[in-house]
Amino acid sequence: MQKHNRHRIRNLSLLVVSAVVLWLLHGLAETALRDTARLSGWLLFGMIVFLAAYNVRKKLPFLPLGSSAAWLQFHIYVGLLTAVVFGLHIGWRLPNGGLETLLASLYGIVFVSGVAGLALSRSLAKRLTTRGNEVMFERIPVYRKRIASEVETIVLTSLDTSESTAIAQFYAERLRPYFSVTRNFWHHLLQSNRPRFALLSEMKAYHRFLNDDERLVMLDLEDRVAAKDDLDYQHTLQATLKYWLFVHIPITYALVAFAVFHLMLVSSFAGGAW
């Protein structure tokens, strides 16, 4: 078996065991009439602070704080374990107070975005290697503009040499909008080739209105359509890989802030009765 699979199985087993142990301990504490909400609350808070600290670790790459990969592994499994602690903390019921509902929602968003982000990281990275050239995200607009201006030149040149405006018309109606911006985000994310296929089919069908020279020009344009589509694909996947963190991180900060507030409130009401 390969290294990553081995690790996955080991870590998942550890996770399940920890979850069961926590559950049992919680049950025991309840029968012993302990203040379980306080225990699980502090545990949850500690775990969330640890999870949020990953952001700090990333900002300090030169400190000898362990590898980011090791952090992420802990992050994922501790993150998943928070679901059990969170469930125990709120007694597996939807909260009703305003602040509690807000806190639970923030937690829910961070948790779900984390799981989704992990799934995206693992699946999209693989898909990126299968289509189009490897491009730097920041350079994609430059390449797109380059293709667009090449296409414009091809069309203008064909206009100079041919009497018909068939190509220019097609360009104005169908191609210019296609090349001007990144398109078909959802199709690319869901791995659907429908828009590419549809546009290329339309171009093929248009051949019957063209003479031999124009057909060659059209073939040239079809290549660019495919190249631009590949670029859009890269853009969609790379953008998704980047931007999911724009949900996960800011909401984390909100969660930590409100959790501190929540802690202060409950501590002041409880009056320190341990």
């Binding site: 990275a125 290697t129 730097m136």
Partner: peptide, 28 residues
Amino acid sequence: DMDRCTRCDDCVRACATAHDNNPRFLRR
């Protein structure tokens, strides 16, 4: 391993932080 790389460029940033704010390699 491009099947695992999410193109996050954390490697490039870390390199720059450790080397006079100028990464010593290109992720290319």
